[in-house]
């Protein structure tokens, strides 16, 4: 479903003066959240990654514990089982916390001429990408994303550092947005560097 800007800041303060010459200003968070189903995607993605790592670690632990390799100190081989266990605890915690945390951080907004995004969870990044500098707009959907009917929108500029990715958009919205951006970029475009 399309996520309305349910927690949107009312656009009343549309042209806020920068807090003066005091040399201090704040960015407000972007207006819109990504689709709530993105949490599912992130969770599953983390889960799959964790399962894969766990299998690898278990194999290693098993090998270290049972294979007759002399060079592994006893202390290590006896406690090798702790490795996968510790990892599962870590992974479970991460799976429980990260997706919803991320959901709270991830926001986006397409202003008149600028795409404004905020991503991250522990660390965050705020990014401003002017629409007239867009070079490509990619709309991608992995299989996992297809299941949840969300999509990733990637906008690229002439600078790799200026590429912005919005994950977990509702797929309909993403498609609409990518078309709109492509059109706008086309009309606004100058040299784009």
């Amino acid at each position: 479903m399309n996520t309305p800007p349910h927690d949107a800041i009312p656009p009343s303060g549309e042209s806020p003066e920068p807090p003066g010459s005091a040399g201090v200003a704040r960015l407000r968070p972007p207006l819109r959240r990504v689709s709530g189903r993105a949490i599912g995607v992130w969770t599953l993605r983390l889960l799959f990654g964790a399962v894969f790592n766990l299998v690898v670690l278990s194999l290693i632990a098993w090998a270290a514990g049972s294979a007759p390799w002399g060079w592994i100190p006893d202390r290590v081989s006896e406690n090798a089982w702790m490795l996968p266990v510790a990892y599962s605890v870590y992974a479970l915690a991460k799976i429980a916390i990260v997706p919803s945390w991320r959901y709270r951080v991830h926001r986006w907004e397409v202003g008149d001429d600028v795409i404004y995004t905020r991503v991250g969870w522990i660390s965050r990044a705020w990014q401003l990408v002017p629409v007239n500098r867009l070079q490509t707009v990619d709309h991608t959907q992995g299989w996992l994303e297809r299941i949840f009917d969300v999509a990733t929108l990637k906008v690229q500029t002439a600078s790799y550092a200026g590429s912005s990715t919005i994950e977990g958009l509702d797929s309909e919205e993403a498609r609409r947005l990518s078309e709109e951006l492509a059109v706008r970029a086309g009309t606004l475009r100058d040299d784009a560097t």
């Binding site: 303060g13 549309e14 042209s15 806020p16 920068p18 807090p19 200003a25 704040r26 960015l27 407000r28 972007p30 907004e109 202003g111 008149d112 001429d113 600028v114 404004y116 401003l128 002017p130």
Partner: peptide
Amino acid sequence: MVRPFLAT
């Protein structure tokens, strides 16, 4: 680029 997103 920046002003529209400044917080009041």
